[in-house]
């Protein structure tokens, strides 16, 4: 369970990325509050809603990993594969946040501009995202705590690459409770910064925040590489699949 603290750290620093998208929500949540204490209370309720959703996601994918391991564990080392996939996702997510991927995409777009021009692809899932966003917005504007909580629940369901990357990590645990714990740790890690943002405290200047964002991105990349290493080390076990994580011998 040692890696939970690493996940917590990943969430803590990764939440600098969260502030960009969900920071606005947090500010909206805090808006109707008159006093700092009630603002803090609303922020905590909002975040608990988010963590609830993360736990659900973690539990579902943890169960999914377990189910997969049971079904096809004989052919494929499910844990290893998922761990590697999760690691790749995290690394990609981190690199995107540092802006490296954006350069590549812009390069591709310039190079193949003529071939791409005129094609528009409608992503059906975007409809789902928009719907969730609409619900979040509707709940955000309400004063009642039940609605703040629900706003948090739906914020957790919003499409977010960072969340999905950590969800993949949770899947690699192949255990429902460990999956929930992983996501809970991630969620708890995101609390401090989100609560601070929502309460209106700005600890860092703009430059500082950007540096923090870059640092957070590299931390996410580090977490990803660790996951890949874990998965790879699973695979080097030729005898039989180990039932526990080789890194922490849990």
């Amino acid at each position: 369970m040692m890696e939970l603290s690493l996940v917590f750290l990943g969430g803590l620093l990764g939440s600098a990325h969260c502030v960009g998208m969900c920071g606005g929500f947090a500010v909206l949540i805090g808006a109707p509050a008159k006093r700092l204490t009630s603002n803090l209370a609303r922020q905590l309720i909002y975040s608990s809603g988010r963590i609830f959703t993360y736990c659900v996601l973690g539990g579902v994918v943890g169960y999914g990993g377990l189910w997969l391991a049971q079904r096809i564990g004989g052919f494929v080392h499910v844990q290893a594969v998922i761990a590697i996939l999760a690691g790749v996702l995290l690394v990609t997510q981190g690199l995107i946040s540092t802006g490296a991927v954006r350069y590549a995409r812009a390069f591709v777009r310039r190079r193949f501009a003529s071939a791409i021009a005129g094609h528009r692809v409608e992503i059906p899932a975007a409809g789902m995202g928009c719907l969730m966003g609409g619900m979040v917005g509707a709940f955000l504007r309400d004063r009642r705590w039940s609605h703040v909580f629900l706003a948090g629940v739906f914020t957790g369901l919003l499409p977010c690459g960072l969340v999905y990357a950590f969800v993949a990590l949770a899947a690699s645990t192949s255990d429902m409770f460990r999956g929930m714990a992983t996501m809970a740790a991630f969620g708890l890690g995101t609390i401090p910064l989100m609560v601070l943002t929502g309460s209106g405290a700005t600890l860092f200047s703009l430059v500082g925040r950007r540096r923090l964002l870059t640092l957070a991105a590299w931390c996410v990349v580090l977490t990803g590489m660790l996951s890949i290493a874990r998965g790879a080390s699973f695979l080097t076990w030729t005898a039989e699949a180990p039932t526990s994580c080789p890194l922490c011998h849990d």
Binding site: C55, V56, V60, M135, L150, V153, F154
Partner: peptide
């Protein structure tokens, strides 16, 4: 809110069922 609450409760039910 009805829909949101229903989704929240469903998520809980799903967890316990799993």
């Amino acid at each position: 809110a009805k829909l949101g609450l229903a989704i929240f409760l469903s998520l809980n039910v799903m967890m316990f069922t799993m």
